[in-house]
Simulated scan of single mutants.
Amino acid sequence: MNEHSTVDAETASVIPAEELARMTDDIVTALKTVFDPEIPVDIYELGLIYKVDIDDERMVTVDMTLTAPGCPVAGDMPGWVEDAVNTVGGVQGTNVNLVFDPPWDQSRMSDEARAALNYW
């Protein structure tokens, strides 16, 4: 994960550790399929994903933000994230929370995103 994102699960989860690790990897992979149409980098590498939580019932909660509150796809992107995460085996459902605290800035981008956008 990039340094600003977290994936949490209950510390005493009923989900076996191997399955939780697989789900986590697959969720990150799914998140990397979602792009802001104005930026040629996926939302995960951009640092728009703040937190992913997998509960014992395999429900996933994603806290995410946008590059700007007035982003033209603000109404659509949470649905894209929900659809992507729901493709992961074992996920029973997804709730996406759009948050703006802390505000997104370029420091949240991964090195991969910085290279793709030439932000060095």
Rank of each mutant, 00 (worst) to 15 (best):
56 D>W: 06
84 A>Y: 05
60 V>W: 03
68 A>R: 09
107 S>M: 06
21 A>Q: 14
85 V>D: 03
28 V>Y: 10
41 V>Q: 04
87 T>S: 09
97 N>F: 04
76 D>I: 12
45 E>I: 08
71 C>G: 06
101 D>T: 14
82 E>Q: 14
10 E>A: 15
28 V>F: 13
42 D>I: 00
120 W>K: 08
15 I>P: 03
29 T>Q: 13
46 L>H: 03
44 Y>E: 12
58 R>G: 08
86 N>S: 11
67 T>F: 03
18 E>N: 13
77 M>Q: 05
11 T>E: 15
4 H>E: 12
25 D>K: 15
51 K>Q: 14
6 T>Y: 07
74 A>N: 06
57 E>Y: 07
90 G>Q: 07
33 T>A: 02
93 G>E: 01
8 D>Q: 08
50 Y>V: 04
7 V>Y: 10
32 K>F: 02
18 E>D: 15
72 P>E: 02
84 A>L: 07
36 D>E: 06
44 Y>A: 09
75 G>L: 00
44 Y>L: 11
42 D>V: 03
97 N>W: 05
87 T>H: 09
90 G>I: 09
38 E>K: 03
32 K>Q: 14
50 Y>Q: 08
118 N>V: 10
14 V>T: 14
43 I>A: 08
96 V>Y: 00
65 T>K: 07
113 A>C: 07
105 D>M: 06
12 A>C: 08
48 L>Y: 02
56 D>T: 08
77 M>A: 05
71 C>W: 02
47 G>N: 09
91 V>K: 10
3 E>R: 09
90 G>Y: 08
37 P>W: 00
70 G>M: 04
100 F>S: 10
72 P>K: 08
27 I>S: 03
24 T>E: 13
55 D>Q: 11
43 I>W: 05
36 D>C: 10
52 V>P: 00
58 R>H: 15
6 T>K: 12
115 A>P: 00
106 Q>Y: 05
39 I>V: 12
55 D>A: 03
18 E>C: 01
86 N>G: 02
7 V>I: 15
41 V>L: 04
68 A>L: 05
46 L>W: 01
